[in-house]
């Protein structure tokens, strides 16, 4: 137990150090506004990918409606700050609560479905959320919700990202998390062992949705606008791609996936005509070579780094 605490503390220190380095680079202007924007975007995408991984990767429920929850968070957060003039932190909490509540309400009936049927139901729900927003003129309808102040800074995005990773990592390492994983591995066996599968599925879904809501409110408070076009099913696919590319069931994998794809997308902006062609080819090639995702279901640790640098070859149970 003590050792675990010590490691947590170490990684927390690492995070603070990383924050200090990036913030320093921003301050001395080495990272210009373009990269600053993309770093914030990476943080938001990591929150989305890690939270979807909890649903898809750890609990094994195939959900492709994450953009819907993100939209709820984005709009509700904006209503809180713009219409009700509440502080940003209240907006974030409200966004998380609303998205989580919606996830709970939606999850309760739909999580009875399995596999592709669940996928299509969540896809449909995501679209229903988006179409509903499109028809509410209070939040701008098709023109989008304009005039949102830019409250999201690198600091907000970074520490909320750390919070997300920390909460989800600890959840997975708890008995609840092991119950979730048992649902993924074999639902019938889990049920026979006395795991309340519905409860854990709904729990994972609710928590995942709540974090997507946080990401949404960060998103709308960074780009001044919340617009239905940002939350189409293509966004859900993007998040899913990050999760699968990084490795289902690996938190560090999701982080890598989000980092890599956001980065590729940013770099490719210079080649507008070829952008999506290159992006799609990269996706195909990466999947062909690493179908289990870049990290499979393993986590990055120092040991893997040592091996990568060409060192220790023994004792790597990770390599199947």
């Amino acid at each position: 137990m003590n050792a675990v605490r010590k490691r947590d503390l170490l990684s927390l220190l690492g995070c603070v150090a990383l924050y200090a380095v990036i913030q320093g680079l921003i301050m001395v202007d080495i990272l210009g506004p373009f990269w600053q924007l993309n770093i914030v975007l990476i943080c938001i995408n990591i929150i989305l990918a890690v939270s979807l991984n909890l649903i898809n990767g750890f609990t094994g429920q195939f959900s492709i409606g994450h953009a819907g929850f993100m939209a709820v968070g984005a709009y509700l957060g904006a209503v809180m700050t713009v219409k009700l003039h509440l502080p940003f932190i209240v907006a974030i909490i409200a966004a998380a609560a609303a998205a989580g509540l919606l996830g709970f309400i939606i999850g309760l009936p739909t999580l009875r479905l399995s596999g592709d049927y669940l996928a299509i139901a969540t896809l449909g729900l995501g679209e229903i959320i988006r179409i509903t927003i499109l028809n509410i003129s209070y939040v701008g309808g098709a023109s989008g919700f304009m005039g949102i102040p830019r409250y999201t800074t690198f600091t907000w995005a970074f520490f909320l990202m750390i919070l997300t990773i920390f909460v989800i990592k600890n959840l997975i390492n708890s008995s609840h998390g092991r119950a979730c994983i048992s649902v993924r591995e074999n639902e019938i066996a889990a049920e026979a062992m006395g795991v309340d599968t519905t409860r854990y599925k709904v729990m994972a879904f609710t928590i995942g949705a709540a974090f997507a809501g946080i990401a949404g409110s960060l998103f709308s408070h960074y780009f001044y606008i919340a617009h239905p076009a940002s939350f189409t099913f293509m966004r859900s696919f993007d998040i899913l791609t990050m999760v699968v590319l990084g490795g289902l069931g690996s938190i560090t994998g999701s982080i890598t996936g989000a980092l890599l794809l956001t980065f590729i997308s940013a770099v490719l902006a210079s080649y507008p005509e070829w952008r999506m062609v290159i992006y799609s080819l990269m996706l195909i090639v990466l999947m062909l070579y690493r179908p289990q995702g870049l990290l499979g279901n393993h986590e990055i640790s120092l040991a893997i780094f040592k091996r990568l640098m060409g060192g220790v070859k023994s004792g790597n149970a990770q390599n199947k």
């Binding site: 289902l248 952008r275 999506m276 062609v277 799609s280 195909i284 999947m287 062909l288 179908p291 289990q292």
Partner: peptide, 22 residues
């Protein structure tokens, strides 16, 4: 990807779809 996890094939299918479109 015949023996790969189904979700990997799904992502490839999304990739193929984007490739054909663009």
């Amino acid at each position: 990807l015949r023996s790969a996890p189904r979700i990997a094939v799904l992502i490839t299918a999304i990739g193929v779809s984007l490739f054909l479109e663009y």
